[in-house]
C-alpha cells in the first residue's frame, strides 16, 4: 500500500516536472559569462550637440532646424560575435525626442573586442514578415503603409531654403530590395587600435556620435533647396543613405 501511495504521489509530480522541463521558454537566459554592452548615441551637427528646433547651418550654407530625427540600429556585433538576445529584441530605434532611446544596453559574451558593427536600418526579412512589435511596431511612425517597408532613418525639419509649405524638409529614407536597398552596415574600429575587454558581469560602454551634417554632405551634396523631401525608395534615397552612412564615429570606449 505504501508503494502504491508513493507511486500515486510520484506520478503526478513527475508529470508536472516533465511538463515544466518541456515548456518552451521564450527567454534567452544570458549565461554567467556575459557582460553588458552599453552604446550611448549622441547626435550632433559637426562639433555642436544637436538640439531640436535650434538653427544650424549645413555645409551648403543653408540654415536649418531639426524637428525630428530617428534611426534604426539592429544586428549589433562586437567583432563577429552576436549579442545574447532574442531575434525579436535585436532592433532599436534611436529617437532624438526620447533621450532614453539613445542608450542601448545589450548582453554580450565576455571577451576582448576590437570593433563594433551594426546595421543602420531593418533587415529585408523583417520588412516582409508581417506585423511586428517593439521597436518595429508601426506605431513608431517608421513603417510605410502604402508600400510596405520600414523607414530606416528619418530627418525632418524646417529651412528657409525649402520651397515646401511651412519651409519643411523631410527625409524619410527606406527601401530594402534590389537596387533600392538603403541598408548600411556600419563598422567602427575601437580607437587606439587596441582591444577593449568586456568582463563577465561587467559593462563595456561605447559612446558613438552621429553627425547630422553628413546627411547633406557626404559622397554627395544634398541641398534642401534642391531636395526638400525624399519619401520614397529610389535613387535620391540611396544617395542620402550613402551620405548618412558616414555620420557615425566612436567618441570613446570605456571598459
Amino acid at each position: 500500500m505504501k508503494k502504491l501511495v508513493l507511486w500515486m504521489v510520484m506520478a503526478p509530480v513527475t508529470g508536472l516536472c516533465l511538463s515544466f522541463m518541456y515548456s518552451p521558454s521564450a527567454v534567452n537566459h544570458p549565461s554567467s559569462k556575459t557582460g553588458k554592452l552599453i552604446i550611448s548615441f549622441r547626435n550632433s551637427v559637426d562639433a555642436l550637440p544637436l538640439e531640436l528646433n535650434k538653427t544650424y547651418i549645413n555645409s551648403l550654407q543653408e540654415p536649418f532646424k531639426v524637428t525630428r530625427l530617428k534611426y534604426y540600429i539592429s544586428h549589433i556585433e562586437l567583432d563577429n560575435t552576436s549579442a545574447v538576445i532574442t531575434p525579436d529584441a535585436n532592433y532599436f530605434l534611436v529617437n532624438e525626442e526620447a533621450p532614453v532611446s539613445k542608450t542601448i544596453t545589450v548582453p554580450f559574451p565576455a571577451g576582448s573586442y576590437h570593433r563594433i558593427t551594426f546595421l543602420l536600418g531593418v533587415d529585408s526579412l523583417r520588412n516582409v514578415s508581417g506585423a511586428q512589435s517593439g521597436a518595429l511596431d508601426p506605431l513608431n511612425g517608421m513603417f510605410w503603409t502604402w508600400n510596405s517597408g520600414y523607414i530606416m532613418a528619418k530627418l525632418e525639419g524646417r529651412s528657409p531654403a525649402s520651397s515646401l509649405p511651412l519651409q519643411q524638409f523631410e527625409f524619410h529614407i527606406g527601401g530594402f530590395q534590389g537596387r533600392d536597398n538603403v541598408l548600411k552596415k556600419i563598422s567602427l574600429a575601437f580607437p587606439g587600435g587596441k582591444p577593449f575587454v568586456l568582463k563577465a558581469g561587467k559593462t563595456l560602454t561605447i559612446d558613438i556620435n552621429a553627425n547630422i551634417q553628413k546627411w547633406f554632405q557626404g559622397p554627395r551634396s544634398i541641398s534642401i533647396a534642391t531636395h526638400p523631401s525624399c519619401t520614397t525608395p529610389g535613387s535620391l534615397a540611396k544617395q542620402i543613405a550613402d551620405n548618412y552612412a558616414e555620420m557615425f564615429s566612436i567618441v570613446s570606449v570605456t571598459d
Binding site: 520588412n127 508581417g130 508601426p138 506605431l139 503603409t145 502604402w146 510596405s148
Partner: peptide, 29 residues
Amino acid sequence: FHLDGGINNLEVQPLAPITAPNEMAESIE
C-alpha cells in the same frame, strides 16, 4: 496586396486603409 502590389504581407495591409485620410482616416494609437 493592393492593385499595385505595394503591400508585401497580409498582416500589414490594414495599416493602409486605416491610416489613409480618404478611407478610415484613423491612427493605430
